[in-house]
Structures are given as C-alpha cells and as structure tokens.
Write a protein that binds this DNA or RNA. Structure first.
Length: 952
DNA sequence: CTGGTCAAGATACCTTTGACCCTT
DNA sequence: GAAGGGTCTTTGGTATCTTGACCA
C-alpha cells in the first residue's frame, strides 16, 4: 500500500475534506499514532513473531469504538476459536495421512468412487454440518470461493469507506472468513474450528455401505417396518413389494439376515426378484438412463448424490442452474455406445449374474426353511398324529426304521388323504396352509409330501424334507446377460421358484420335492418317492438318482430336518462335474449361508446324530468319486476329478509318479489331484514362501519379454577419431567391432531365450525373515525390505507406516529401509509399491517419539504461521478502527453520548463542503517539499488546508 | 435335437525397481 | 542445490476361455 507515514505534527489541518484517492488505504487518511503498536506498514509485512495478543490487548484496541457487549462478543468468539484451533491439531494430521492410506493394499483401500470427503465448515458458520462433497461439488465450491473472494475485495474497499460501528462486526467476520478461504484455496489444511473432527476422512467400504444403508433406510422409516412385528403377518402385495425393494439393495449378509427374519416371523419370502444392486459405477450408459428415468426416486434413495446427470444429444455440456444444482448433459457418443453393445460378456456382467444367482438362492433357501417350519408346526403334527392308529405310533417309536414301516405310514396317509393335481387357490391367510389341507383331506402332490413329512415327524421318525432347486443360472451366457441387462433397465418379474411355479408345462413338480428317511437297517438316508410312476408300490429307490429327470439339470438339492439344512446335491447328481457348473463357485459361501440360517442347536445333538452325519458325508463323497468319465474331451477340461494331459497348463505340472487312471480316445486320463500348480520364485515370494535351497526347477518356461528400454541411442564417435584395431592380422575399425559384438549379443539372446524356473509348493518353505544385527536393517539389492506379508518383516525390526519417517531416520542416523508391500502398474510398467519403513525394533520407540515430536513441531509451526496471519489481520483492523476513532475524536463531530457518529463519507463530504470558507469546494492540493532530507512534504489547498506527510 | 470340434475373438495372466517437473 | 512428492500414461505377448458355426 502506501509507503508514506504521516508526520503527526503536520496533521494540523486534519483530514477533514481530504479527498481520498482511489487505491489508497485508510492509513493514508489517518495520522500516525505512536501509541498504536505494531502497525503493519504493508500488507505483505509479517507481524512480529513475538507479539502476544490477548484479551486485554484486543480490549484496549477496541477502546471506545465498540459497545461493551459487542466488544466482548467479538473478542470471545475470536479467542475461543483460536483455542479450538490449537486443540484440533489432530484433524489436520488426518488430512495429510491419506497418502499412505491411499496406497493400502489387500483391498483395504477404499475405491475412488467410494471415497467421500467430509469438508470442514469454516468457522463463523453457524451450522455444524457434515457435508458429503463430490468432485463436482468441490469444483462448484471453488467457484463460490472465488466469488466470495471477489466479494471480499469489494468488502475491503467498502471497509475503507464505511467504518461505522454497525458495520464493524460484519467487517470482522468478512476478514476472518477471507482468512479461511485464502487458506483453503492455498491447499493448506482447511481451518475448522467447529468441525475439525472428521475433517478429512476416508470412509472404509463397510462403514460407507453402512452409511448408505442408513441413508436408504431413512425414507423407509415413515412406514414403521412391519417385518419387526412379533406376530405373524399375512403376505400382501405391499409386503411383497417391500421385500423386493429390500432384496434389490442388500448385501449378501443382509439377505441372509432378512431371509432368517422372514422365516422366524412366519412370513414367506417372495422369490420374485430384481437384479441385486451393485455398487454403481459411473461409466455405464445404463446408469445414466436409469437416472433419467427415475431421478426423483433415485434421489430419495441416495441423498448424497444430488447431481442429476441427464443425457441430451443437443444440449450444452454443462449448465449451472440458478438453484445451485448442476446439470451435466452428456452428448452420447454413438460410436462408443455401439462398442459397448458389441462387447460380449464382461467381468462385470459375470459378477452381476453371479450375484443375482446368489440372491435368488438365498431366497429359495429361506423359502425351504419357511416351508419346513410349517411342517414342524406343532398343530399340524398334532392333527396328523391324531389320525394315526396306535400300533403305528408304537412302531414309529421303536428304533427300527425300515421300508415296511415307511410303507405302512404312507399307506395310512393314502387312506386318509386324497391327492389332487391342482387345488383352488384361496385367499392367503396367516394361518398355516397345511391346517386347511388337513381339514379338507385333499392335498396337492407337494402338500402331500409335506404332510407325509409331518406325519413321520409326529410319530417320532426324523425325516428330511428335500427340495431340488434351480435358481437363475450362474453361468454367464449371452442370453442371460441380455436378460440381466433388461432387468437392469426395467425390472420384470422372473419367478424362478420351482415349487411355487411347479405347474409350468414341462416341469414335473413332484420330482422337485421328496422325503428322505434314515433307514436303520441299511444305515443310510433313503429316498422316499411318494409318486413313483413306474410302480406305485415301489416307494423307496435303490438309486436316488432315479428320482431326477436327467433332462433337467439342477444346481442344488437341499435337505432340511428341524433347523438343520444340508446340501445333498451329490447324491442326486447324475454328473457332479456338470452340476457343479450350475452352482456357486465358492463352496464355502453355501456353508456360510447354512450356518447363518440353521439353528446352532444341531451342534449339541447327540452322538447318534453325529454318527449319521458322518455316514452321510461319506456316502456323498463316494457319490462324487464314482462319477464316470465325461463323454467328451472338453468335459475333462474343468472336471473336478479327472483331467487329460492336454489340459495341463503352462504353469501346471503332472506329478512324475502319477499313473493314468484310464484312457479316453487314446488319451491318458489322470487324476486332477496329480496336477500341481507351479510358480516362479518371485511369485512364491509374494505368497510369503521361498524356494528351498538346492531345489531344481520342475519346469522352465520362456520368460515374458521385457519391454524395450527406450534408452537414448549412443552416438558413435566420429570415425576419424577412432583407431584401427588389428585382430588376427586384419584391421577393423572400433565401430565395426562394436557392431559385431552387438550382433553376437542379439544372437546369443535369441538362442538362449531367458527362462523362468517354476517350482511347486512342496519345494518351498515359509519365508524366513532375516535377522537384524547391530541396528542394521537387512535389505534386498534394491535397498528395500520385501513385506508382501506382515510376517515377512525382518526379525528384530518393525514396520512403521508414518510419512516422512525416512527423513527423521536420516537426521537421527538410524538405519532404515522402505517397505515394499506390492507391485503396482504405473505407466504400463510394474513398479514397487512402497509403504512405510522398516527400522530396528530397539530404535523404533525413539524414532516414533522423534517423529511425533517432529510432527508436533511442524503442526505448531504451521499453527503459529496461521495465527500470525490471523492476528496480523486482526491487529490491522483494530488499529484502523482506533485510528479512525481517534481522528474522529479529534476532528470529527461528536454526539452527546460521546460516540463517534456518522462515517458516511458522502454525508461528511457534504458537511465539509458546507463548512468551508469560501463556499463548498473540492480541495485541490499542490505538493510542496518541506525537508528534502527527511522526505517531508506538504499538500496545500488554496483554501488554506495543509497536510504534511513524509515520503519514505 | 444333442453333443462334439474347431476357429476366432475376448479375456486373463505374467511381468516385476521411471523420468521429469515443481515445491519445499 | 538436494530431496521429495506429484504427475505423466495406460504394456504386450501368450495362454486360456467363450462363443457360435458346423457337422455327425
């Protein structure tokens, strides 16, 4: 600003009537005052570091200008905020951290689209908000900040002109706001004095999901969840819809939980379903369409996504609406769209379909559980028991269960009940439908099976209610993918429930439901076929597979007994290897579902139960083993038990002692277990294993060619400078020799193409970390420590993941090595991903302490700097206020109460003009040098006004 | 109609230690 | 001037899988 300083003595003429020139600061028009301390002469001038500003100082500054209340309020606010600022140092650290967090591996790092930044609200903002800000929103914010800054400049200008009491507060606020914004713009840590907590957090996926769920859940709160009602509720279309809604958006865990709840509460889970919601990815065109079609609904569901994306061919790419929303209109790239369409099944499609399959499967399992609950209903069992003659009851209670007993039970059932193909559908009631069937004495085949099961159970014979189910196929084909895509666009009903939908023409519903009983004479679970078409008398099949229609492949057969549900598919599968392809790839997943849906009580069942289970398991395994060879060579490709030599891949090996177990089209058939996976040394190292010393590679495969190095070509020296070399009497130039050597090198490389040595698991040992000694960290040839697994850390060392630790190690003279945790692809090449440092254990404590101290110091420094800036600005404002007040006190007019009144410049101008001798006029100054050495000048007006000042 | 084979195209896997510029 | 961090760009060859056409 101005370098001039007022000579106090020269100010006799006062500033009255002085026309302030544009761009001149307030200080120009004010006399210098020795009692005003530490006036920053320039905007850029840093205030004294040692200055201490406290309440008293501020109070003294505010002096007579402000009312006591206002003064107190402002100073209090200011000081509280500063205190908070000090207390909230941690938050800033959080913001710096992400660098490391971003680089986390093992899938722990949140994906970019999952990240939400919580932006701190600058202080002096009333609300304490937790804003979810998207990239677009941030851009918007930056824009607003820019606008704000402009407004601030405007304010600053205003400040120079308007300076009355009423505007004081506003100016102070603006000043402080500006402070904050400037810092935000600079990319420094955002100052938040009210919401520094969570000022910058990366939500982890689970938490994020939970948040989403919570958000989604909100609108639903309006209708208090019927599902939580303890009493049984009838299924209505609205409830069905509700269930569908839930299915749509839930995770696997939730699906199980929900299914369980429905079963527990006696609600039938619907099997009508839509595509399970996946994490939305922005690149899909479909998503955009979805947004377009139901923006309102979507918005309600996902409140945090408040940006509408619409597709419009002709529209401008970006529109900012007056209400602050941003509409992004994307011009659809027709070529790109075609490309997308042309593409076959993507990984994403596959995942979608697998997810759909799983979700459907869960609902079907829940359905089975629900039906089983109806069978186990005490009322149903009681009614069934009441029809049974006493002899049968006694017989049932004996330990002997054989075919004759089963036959007599079935005969009794047949004598009591009539089986009809179709039953007139009655309106749904919340009573157990089986009760109605018992009353009516006529049942559909499925109900008959259920009643027979209830009958067996009522007389004390444990039977399994078995269901073959076939959910939407898990294997992604073009057809199913198209179907899924349709589902994505417009949800349609796809009732895959084989039980409910049993009457469809080509499916035989009877073959979908049956009973298994444990035959004590045969010591195995036997299949009871109520509706044997071949011979009505033959109730029990010797081969359970006779029950299954070989033309209709299915994925799963479940048996349920009380709360214990079990997968018995293998017993009924004609070709397990084929069946497997229709099932969830991860077997564990199914076990997990069962464990969640089954009662824990089965664990505590008696030894007899356990024995039967063991026996059953053994028979199931046998079913798997006795499977015949596939009928085609292709069938061997992914066969679980057998394989052909031609299907052994590059990174696999047949064990040398493996014997062929058969022959297929003149090709030897081997057991799958004789084929072993091989890996290179590096690969094993990443698995945390090292190849044993002295182990010979089992296989050598050509190495992948390394990318050509783009090294600058050597510029050969000018020939005239090179000497001739004499080899065997012949003279060559050095260049010729170079070329020959290069050729030889290339030839050599081609001949001995680099090979990768592969080793088997049994040739490896778990990685044994090296031992640190004398405070030196053992490291590899790149100076790193391999830390692919946490237990690979050298003994006596610790892995500390703190940014900037290396620097401190260096200053302290502590040996350290960066930890390499994974490989990363950058610029199309693999580069190591370093995360944290490895240091010797004994030094870690000192180091961490030093690091923390350093952090503390850095934080404090930053804080100090910030405070200095804030204080400086405060001081400037206050000094200006006081100066102004003093000037006004000395030269201005006073009200009766002694307060300065009227700083309206125009008003003052008018007053000045009127009081001037010689009528109102505008001063026209002439600059006169008084003392050239001291730089004292005087501005003189014809009216006699003189203003003395110093030039620096 | 089913199942096998084959070819073409799509996808997955393996590999595995920059360079430069700007700020502090 | 040194150190450190951000940014640049997005490999490429081969094995394996998938799909659809064709044929027995």
């Amino acid at each position: 600003m101005s370098g001039r300083r007022w000579n106090r003595n020269a100010a006799e003429g006062g500033s009255r009537g002085t026309k302030r020139k544009k761009g001149q600061g307030l200080s120009l028009g004010l006399p210098a005052a020795s009692e005003i301390p530490l006036l920053p002469a320039d905007e850029n001038e840093e205030p004294d570091e040692n200055q201490e500003i406290d309440r008293d100082m501020i109070s003294s500054f505010t002096g007579s200008t402000l009312s006591k209340a206002k003064k107190n309020r402002i100073t209090n606010q200011f000081l509280t905020q500063l205190n908070q600022q000090k207390a909230d140092k941690e938050a800033k650290q959080v913001k710096r951290k992400p660098l490391i967090e971003k680089k986390q591996i093992n899938g722990e790092a949140p994906l970019p689209h999952q990240r939400r930044r919580t932006v701190p609200i600058p202080f002096l903002v009333d609300q304490e908000l937790d804003l979810q800000v998207d990239e677009e929103e941030e851009a918007d914010k930056r824009k607003r900040l820019e606008e704000n800054r402009k407004a601030d400049e405007e304010n600053a200008r205003r400040q120079r002109e308007l300076f009355n009491e009423s505007q004081m507060e506003e100016i102070v606020e603006e000043e402080v706001e500006k402070e904050v914004e400037v810092e935000e713009k600079d990319g420094a840590e955002s100052v938040s004095l009210q919401t520094v907590q969570n000022s910058f957090t990366f939500l982890d996926p689970v938490e994020n999901e939970a948040r989403k769920q919570a958000k989604r859940g909100k609108p639903k709160k309006k209708t208090p969840s019927k599902t939580t009602k303890p009493r049984k509720t009838r299924e209505t279309p609205s409830r069905r819809r509700e269930f569908e809604e839930k299915i749509k958006s839930m995770t696997e865990e939730e699906a199980i939980e929900l299914a369980k709840n429905y079963v527990d509460q006696g609600n039938e889970p619907t099997t009508k379903m839509e595509k399970p919601r996946k994490k939305r990815k922005s690149q899909g065109m479909m998503d955009e369409f979805e947004d377009e079609e139901e923006p309102v609904q979507r918005q309600a569901e996902e409140e945090w996504e408040d940006i509408q994306i619409t597709t419009n061919h002709a529209a401008a790419p970006l529109q900012v609406c007056t209400n602050g929303d941003i509409n992004i209109n994307l011009r659809r790239n027709v070529k790109e769209e075609k490309k997308v369409k042309k593409k076959g099944i993507t990984k994403e499609d596959r995942e979608d379909i697998a997810e759909l399959h799983k979700a459907h499967l869960v609902t079907l399992i829940a359905h089975v559980t629900w039906v089983n609950k109806q069978i186990d209903d005490e009322e149903v069992k009681g009614l069934m028991l009441s029809t049974v003659p006493q002899e049968l009851v006694w017989e049932g209670q004996s330990d002997l269960v054989d075919r004759s007993l089963v036959r007599s039970v079935v005969q009794h059932f047949r004598s009591q009940f009539r089986v009809v193909q179709f039953e007139k559908e009655k309106k749904p009631s919340n009573r157990n439908p089986l009760l109605r069937v018992i009353k009516r004495k006529s049942a559909t085949p499925i109900q008959a099976v259920q009643l027979v099961a209830a009958l067996f159970r009522s007389i004390g014979i444990n039977v399994r209610y078995c269901v073959a189910i076939d959910p939407v196929p898990i294997k992604a084909t073009v057809k199913t993918t198209v179907h899924i895509k349709q589902l994505k666009e417009a949800p349609i009903d796809c009732d895959f429930d084989p039980v409910a939908n049993g009457a469809t023409n080509h499916q035989d519903p009877i073959r979908k439901v049956w009973i298994e009983f444990y035959s004590t004479t045969e010591n195995r679970w036997s299949t009871l076929d109520l509706f044997n078409k071949k011979s009505a008398d033959k109730l029990v099949h010797d081969d359970p597979r006779a029950l299954i229609d070989p033309r209709r492949p299915f994925g799963y057969v479940f048996a349920i007994e009380h709360d214990y549900i079990k997968d018995i598919t293998r017993r009924y599968s004609l070709r397990w290897s084929v069946t497997k392809q229709f099932r969830v790839f991860e077997e564990r997943w199914l076990f997990h579902i069962f464990r969640r849906l089954s009662s824990k009580a089965f664990k505590n069942r008696g030894p007899e139960f356990k024995r039967r289970e063991m026996e059953d398991e053994r028979s199931l395994m046998l079913c798997e083993e006795i499977e015949e060879f596939p009928t085609s060579a292709e069938g061997f490709r992914r066969h679980p038990t057998y394989t052909l030599e031609k299907f052994i891949t590059k990174y696999q090996m047949l064990m040398p002692d493996a014997q062929p177990v058969g022959e297929f089209k003149e090709m030897a058939v081997y057991k799958r277990e004789d084929v072993k996976e091989l890996h290179s040394m590096d690969k094993w190292l990443q698995e945390g294993r090292v190849v044993k010393e002295g182990e010979e590679p089992l296989k050598k495969v050509p190495k992948k060619k390394q990318r050509e190095e783009e090294k600058p070509q050597k510029i050969p020296a000018p020939p005239q400078e090179r000497e001739l070399v004499n080899i065997n009497g012949q003279e060559f130039t050095a260049e010729e020799i170079d070329m020959a050597m290069e050729q030889a090198r290339i030839q050599n490389e081609e001949e001995s193409a680099p090979l990768t040595s592969l080793y088997g698991l049994w040739q490896t040992l778990p990685y044994e970390p090296q031992v640190a000694s004398d405070g030196v960290v053992p490291r590899n040839r790149y100076g790193n420590v391999y830390l692919f697994k946490p237990d690979m850390c050298p003994i006596g060392c610790v892995h500390i993941r703190k940014p900037g630790l290396g620097k401190i190690c260096k200053t302290l003279g502590i040996d350290y090595a960066p930890a390499m945790v994974a490989w990363e692809t950058k610029m199309g090449r693999s580069v190591p991903l370093l995360d944290g440092y490895v240091v010797c254990e004994e030094q870690s404590e000192i180091l961490v302490e030093a690091w923390e101290q350093n952090e503390q110091r850095v934080r404090e420094e930053r804080q100090k700097k910030k405070e200095k800036l804030v204080y400086g600005r405060w001081k400037r404002i206050l000094i200006k206020m006081i100066t102004r007040a003093r000037v006004d006190e000395k030269y201005g007019e006073r009200e009766d109460n002694g307060l300065i009144h009227g700083t309206n410049v125009e008003e003052k101008k008018e007053k000045t003009k009127k009081t001037k001798k010689g009528g109102p006029h505008e001063h026209e100054f002439e600059e006169v040098m008084i003392d050239g050495e001291k730089g004292v000048y005087e501005n003189r007006c014809t009216c006699g006004l003189k203003i003395r000042f110093e030039k620096l």
